[in-house]
Design a protein around this nucleic acid. Sequence first.
DNA 1: ATCAATTTGTGCGTATGTATA
DNA 2: ATATACATACGCACAAATTGA
Lengths: 243, 243
Amino acid sequence: MAGQVQRQTGVALWRQIADRIRQAISAGAYDETGMVPPEMTLAVQFGVNRHTVRSALAALAQEGIVRAVQGRGTLIERKERLNFPISKRTRFNSGIGEQARETRGLLLDHGEEQANDEVARWLKLAPGTKVIRLETVRKADGRPVSSATSWFPAARFAGMPDAYETTESITRAFAELGLSDYIRATTEITAAHAEAADLSALELTPGAIVLITKAMNTDLDGVPVQYSVTRFAADRVQFTIEN
Amino acid sequence: MAGQVQRQTGVALWRQIADRIRQAISAGAYDETGMVPPEMTLAVQFGVNRHTVRSALAALAQEGIVRAVQGRGTLIERKERLNFPISKRTRFNSGIGEQARETRGLLLDHGEEQANDEVARWLKLAPGTKVIRLETVRKADGRPVSSATSWFPAARFAGMPDAYETTESITRAFAELGLSDYIRATTEITAAHAEAADLSALELTPGAIVLITKAMNTDLDGVPVQYSVTRFAADRVQFTIEN
DNA sequence: ATCAATTTGTGCGTATGTATA
DNA sequence: ATATACATACGCACAAATTGA
């Protein structure tokens, strides 16, 4: 874990250190012992006071990533990073596969509205066309992984909110509404700092990073059936693209 | 730009605000005027003192993203976000296409070494096999976009460093070495906070985000020819996957 | 059972950075 | 520019828990 933390940058040292340790845990750097190195070792490594390391570890403990035991050390509780394959057949639940014991999809809010320019462009509709909006959060083993806003052409998928609430899955909801198969046409990926809404929806701490995908699905005839903006907790996921 | 900035989070208010304004500029929120709103307007919007907004704008001015003019306002200098298509035919230079007038690839360092477990796994070689390592930075219109470490099987591509230095392009270097075509087989995408090395290589400010890709290219027979770990300045790029 | 070494937990004083008014 | 409040970071000291000799 080379590279020093930096002062006077607007990001507190304890946060920089927490981010680095979180990353190291995800990368499996401490797999041999299952523990984080002692506080003093980390303090020397990062060139800071032990108190500063403690602040960082406290933040990670708060996230449930580590657990400190007096006299023993700081144990690693979790190190998973879910992998999302992105392909023509991109689906949340089957993509997760055996990486989680249980996945759930919760419907937070929904409504019918008129497509704004962005939604209309992606769904290839005229601006103002009626669309169904779904706000959902997906969890794996109880842990929030992503929050999404999806839009569907209202003319075709008016029953979407009910279908999703019942099935907890876009794929199964589509099936209920008579669409047995669909294709991921385009995916756009960016990254940004978590906003206030992300913090509560994804149970993140401020300063965390979100990976943002804007994706469009079509039916087998190439007609757009869904546009969604999904925000993933960056330190819980990675994407893979296989060509 | 909804959502308030938060105190006591380890990220200074001026930095949170700078990040939000940078994001808003990228998203085109101020395209009508080409200017950032007045400092007092922003101060009210974020619920902070005007001084705090000034700190944020000073940081953005330092990055060259905005320029403050007394009596007029704060002008937006740059707002581009380069788009990287990821597909079988993923190539940096042709992918950039007309988005930049000039692209360069600079060779920072290179060497011959033995493949560690990660490199060996990706290149499908036995650990310890000789590989060529290239450290490169790619720039578009003089602005650093990504820094990459690439590994190539040494037996086949011993001339890689020279070829890259001459051609400033992986594609052209491969061509010089007798490989006229190659395929992007796998791409893995994650995001993390910028490390010290990123700050200098990509001219970032601390707290910035990097998008990290781990990618493997093969020749037309499916034999791995390159494994690379590339770190992109997250606020300058986006990825798109077309299926 | 005891002891020493290691490691986390706690307290206090001080200096500097951040933000407001 | 000044004053005030709070957050961040450091340095030192000592207490409490765990481990292994």
